[in-house]
Amino acid sequence: MKSLSFLACLSLFALIFQFAIAADPSQLQDFCVAVNSPANGVYVNGKFCKDPALVTANDFYTTGLNQRKPTNNTAGATATFLTVNNFPGLNTLGLSFARADFAVNGLVPFDYHSRASEILLVTEGTLVAGFVASDQRYFIKTLNVGDVFLFPQGLIHFAANVGQGPAVAFAAFNSQDPGTTFIPNTVFGSNPPINPALLAKAFQLNITTIMELQAKF
């Protein structure tokens, strides 16, 4: 009986621990508006806290996500992120937000978020979105206005415009700084460059092709 109780407690502890590390730590105060100067307060979640007496409504407000962003780049898409780095009021709240603008045939390149899951809402146009699970299963869906798709934390995913006109989507993340890593840029555009021979072996390509890809990034 004691062994059963011990196992039950151990299982409960493991479950609680799993939830505890699933997202950013919970705050122990109403808010902690991020500042860069240590003179203003304590260091919490990678940022210093602004003196609560000096906090105003503007610390929790931003604007501009109603505006289209240029998409005249190689991917034909632009993602505009609101994270703790440009929206200080997000500090310790475990949230961030983004807007993605797509030209016709535009693509937000294959990426993943090491610290957050992502939920995507289409507000204009038609997108195809998908992700690959750790067992290499591929989940893909065509999304129209009002449709929502979920990208689990840490899994490689993408979104592409398959409509006849521009597309817009908004995304929310359960982290103040999702840790966005774009796969092509990271692999082929690292500084200093990864040895082309290693990449050639990993991708089963010749070194010349790898070097051409590195030159693009």
Score class of each variant (00 low, 15 high):
Phe17Cys: 10
Gly89Arg: 05
Lys2Trp: 09
Asn185Pro: 01
Ile16Asn: 00
Ser134Met: 10
Gln67Pro: 01
Ile119Val: 08
Asp51Glu: 13
Asn144Asp: 08
Thr123Asp: 01
Asp30Thr: 12
Leu143Tyr: 02
Ile21Val: 14
Thr181Arg: 06
Thr186Glu: 07
Thr74Glu: 06
Leu7Ala: 14
Ala14Tyr: 12
Val162Asn: 00
Val168His: 09
His157Phe: 02
Lys216Cys: 04
Val132Tyr: 03
Ala8Gln: 10
Tyr43Ala: 04
Thr181Glu: 13
Ser117Val: 01
Thr56Tyr: 00
Gly125Glu: 01
Pro52Trp: 13
Asn206Met: 07
Leu143Thr: 10
Cys9Asp: 07
Val35Trp: 12
Leu107Cys: 04
Asn66Phe: 08
Val35Ser: 10
Ser134Arg: 12
Ile194Gly: 02
Gln164Ile: 12
Thr126Ile: 08
Asp135Glu: 09
Val42Glu: 14
Pro152Thr: 12
Leu90Tyr: 03
Thr74Ala: 09
Met211Ala: 08
Leu95Met: 15
Asn58Cys: 07
Thr71Glu: 01
Phe60Ala: 05
Lys69Asp: 09
Leu150Asp: 11
Ala39Trp: 06
Gly165Cys: 10
Ile16Phe: 10
Val145Ile: 08
Asp135Tyr: 06
Phe48Met: 00
Asn161Val: 14
Ala172Asp: 10
Ala23Arg: 11
Thr78Leu: 07
Leu90Met: 04
Ala215Pro: 10
Arg115Val: 02
Ser96Gly: 01
Gly130Leu: 04
Gln18Phe: 11
Tyr138Leu: 13
Phe48Ala: 02
Asn195Asp: 11
Asn174Ala: 07
Phe110Gly: 02
Phe48Tyr: 15
Phe151Pro: 04
Asp111Lys: 11
Val104Thr: 04
